[in-house]
Amino acid sequence: MDLEKVLLEGENLLQPWAVSTSRPEENRSDVVVARENLHAAVQAIKDAGWGYLTAITGLDCPAPAAAEGEPAAEGNLELLYHFCSGLAVVTLRVSLPYSDPTLPSVCDILPYATLYERELMELFGVRIQNTPDTSRLVLPDDWPDGIYPLRKNFTGFAAPAAEEKE
């Protein structure tokens, strides 16, 4: 199938919600959407039967160090919903501030997203509303609350201190 045509079709589907659209690579299209539009955008892809959700990547983007005298900017989490159809990959990018990392679940549209959402909640501390299962998937039962290992500020436990706490 014509790669360009497939990509365009995906972009057109998302047009109503797209804040911006770019082509970082020949077979990829990045569409930035606001979080309140994510659910509707995913619904549109599903309704059109365009490809399938391959993965959700979480990214931690801490704010760059503030210049002297300036207040530190707030970092954010970025979630990438990768949809694939043949060679084409359309990525929905949603940005969430540290202070309010909440997002609606897409499990009502794509039931298999539950494992990806559980991963995001555990490893990045994203709060996903209305997701069917919030139990731990991969971290140990005694992992402390509020510590999200894939955030950049997590650099491991100080070994002896962590041992004593338990």
Binding site: V138, P140, F157, E166
Partner: peptide, 8 residues
């Protein structure tokens, strides 16, 4: 699946 562990 499993790519993270805390060794105790």
């Amino acid at each position: 699946n499993d790519r993270l562990i805390k060794i105790r």
